[in-house]
């Protein structure tokens, strides 16, 4: 296990702040009616994306979920082209064809957010097959939720990845809810990681609000994959601070304010900043400066999106086929 350098710790921190700030502002834009369609925000789960992605390069692949902005940001996504996509502009990563639920960047190794729960794991198996076929040490990480762990696609992918010893890391972001249904009402287990043993791979549970814990567990899983020893199921216990869709979109009473407040006490960014302060890596002032710097970048991204042209209707049929 490598101990992260100060630079790595600061890198993880910045990735988390980038996600939080982008998502918070995206939520505001949605509530202001500037972002059409459905928006699934990642606020609260930042430690997972940041703690995993800091280990990856652009040659490592990821598949994401409907809650995918955080994964793309942590993989290196740029705010201007991301906001442009959410706004449905021609300058967006998908030229306005995908939107929030399909945002992607092949150059960054990001095989798309995905509107279909559980669709990603089989695709990650294919990406990992590719890296193994080429005899590289690149890996594929597939993010999915507790809800998706009930989809057949997850089980087929887990079995195949273990069977072929493919370099896949199955990262379950267990935020306690499959849409609006609490975990206890959608599966009879507490730890999704228990399912790993059924496929012949290690299953690991970590505190998904603790970026350091995620970093360390991801490090071990990725090392194992790169060494050719096959997949790992890494379950990160986390929580979404906003609603399934939007910020507090539907006024549903499927969870209590008290429960939310309890989880917010363990805000992953606050926890990590306290840890970094303890270690003498990041002062309060420095942290504030980073938040402000990122917020300015987010605002510039929004401005870029707002000023960007909408797609030319003549591009409607472009890229149906290669």
């Amino acid at each position: 296990m490598s101990t992260p350098s100060d630079d790595v710790l600061l890198d993880i921190h910045r990735r988390m702040v980038r996600i939080r700030t982008f998502e918070t502002e995206a939520g505001r834009m949605a509530e202001a009616g500037k972002i059409p369609g459905a928006l699934h925000l990642y606020v609260g789960e930042e430690a997972v994306a940041a703690g995993v992605m800091v280990h990856l390069s652009n040659e490592d692949w990821i598949t994401s979920t409907h809650r995918g902005h955080g994964h793309l940001i942590a993989k290196g996504g740029e705010f201007d082209r991301m906001f442009a996509e959410l706004f449905g502009r021609a300058t967006g990563y998908c030229r306005g064809k995908g939107g929030s639920m399909h945002i992607s960047n092949m150059d960054l190794g990001m095989l798309g957010a995905n509107g279909i729960v559980g669709a990603g794991p089989p695709i990650a198996v294919g990406a990992a097959f590719s890296t193994k076929y080429r005899k590289t040490d690149r890996v594929a990480v597939t993010f999915f939720g507790d809800g998706a762990s009930n989809e057949g696609s997850f089980h087929e992918a887990a079995n195949m990845a273990a069977l072929y010893k493919l370099p896949v890391i199955f990262v379950c972001e267990n935020n306690g809810y499959g849409e609006y249904t609490p975990q206890a009402k959608h599966q009879a287990i507490v730890d999704v990681a228990d399912r790993a043993s059924g496929y012949g791979m290690p299953g690991v549970v970590v505190d998904g609000m603790d970026a350091m814990a995620v970093y360390e567990a991801a490090d071990a899983a990725i090392e194992r994959a790169r060494a050719g020893d096959g997949p790992t199921l890494l379950e990160c216990k986390t929580y979404r601070f906003f609603d399934h869709v939007g910020v507090r979109g539907m006024g549903l009473t499927y969870r209590t304010d008290e429960e939310l407040a309890e989880w917010q006490k363990r805000d992953p960014i606050h926890l990590f900043e306290a840890r970094l302060a303890e270690l003498g890596v990041l002062s309060k002032d420095d942290a504030v400066a980073i938040h402000e710097e990122v917020l300015a970048e987010v605002r510039a991204g929004i401005e870029f999106a707002e000023e960007s042209p909408t797609p030319d209707p003549d591009t409607l049929l472009d890229d149906v086929y290669a």
Binding site: W61, T63, M106, L111, A119, P121, P122, I123, A124, V125, G126, A127, A128, F129, S130, T131, Y133, R134, A140, G152, S153, E156, A157, N159, M160
Partner: peptide
Amino acid sequence: SEEGIVGLGVGAAATG
């Protein structure tokens, strides 16, 4: 595992 097999094809094709 047809879904896994087709997913394997999608992921492998998208990555070259």
